[in-house]
């Protein structure tokens, strides 16, 4: 699946590229308006990560062009402006999601994954990872065809892990994902630990392997090995 990163800050697009580029996605970068327009006219992408402020034009115009040519790409807008107007304009002109800078790459990856799932699995709401089966519509999880009971937070956490498999995810990113960025209790991440502990216990009890690893008190990694 191809992902196009339209972002004029080279350092930022390089980080996004490094993080996303894997066996799952093939990434390309466009650093200005005209090269972005060329790329979208020549290729099809599963998802486009779009910055609003670009040299040579506005990201919103790229969005309009995509809609005009009936391209099926999912679009995720990333912008430094978190003003209501930008968000509304972006979503009204057909963007699928909106993320304000500065964001965690794990959050970006989760949003990209969600957009691609919405765009490409019409009618199919299942997401599989090894012996885990997630029903995205009913928000339920099965391990080897046996349903397990997860709380809403545990389910969100598992989905977040799967969208960022094989990556180390920072604790702050997990906290922000689960509780939103208004939850200003940043001095302690103990409450995340409780949720992760419970999720692990439930998965292992249901016969799944233990995929969650703690990384030096910095964060967690969800991976096969």
């Amino acid at each position: 699946m191809k992902v196009l990163i339209i972002e004029d800050e080279k350092a930022l697009s390089a980080s996004i590229f490094t993080y996303l580029n894997s066996e799952q996605y093939i990434c390309e970068i466009a650093a200005d308006f005209s090269s972005a327009m060329t790329k979208i006219s020549q290729y099809d992408y599963a998802c486009i990560i779009l910055d609003i402020n670009l040299p040579g034009g506005s990201g919103l115009d790229i969005l309009k062009e995509l809609k005009k040519s009936y391209k099926a790409e999912g679009v995720l807008i990333i912008s430094a402006r978190n003003s209501l107007d930008d968000r509304l304009n972006g979503l009204n002109s057909g963007a699928d999601d909106y993320l304000t800078k500065p964001f965690h790459l794990s959050e970006l990856a989760a949003r990209v994954a969600a957009i691609i799932r919405r765009k490409s699995f019409d009618g199919n709401n299942n997401l599989n990872f090894e012996e885990l089966q997630l029903d995205l519509f009913y928000k339920t999880v099965k391990v080897k065809d046996r349903a397990i009971e997860l709380t809403r937070k545990e389910y969100d956490l598992l989905l977040y892990f799967i969208s960022n498999k094989n990556k180390v995810i920072n604790k702050a990113a997990i906290a922000e994902h689960l509780w939103g960025d208004n939850m200003d209790m940043a001095d302690s991440y103990d409450f995340i630990y409780t949720h992760i502990k419970n999720l692990r216990k439930k998965l292992i009890q249901a016969g799944a392997r233990d995929y969650v690893k703690s990384v030096y008190g910095m964060g967690y990694k969800f991976s096969r090995s």
Partner: peptide
């Protein structure tokens, strides 16, 4: 916001 995004994403890559 943009420099902050760069620092944070760089950290995300480094870890």
């Amino acid at each position: 916001q943009t420099p902050l995004a760069i620092v944070r994403s760089t950290l995300d890559v480094m870890i």
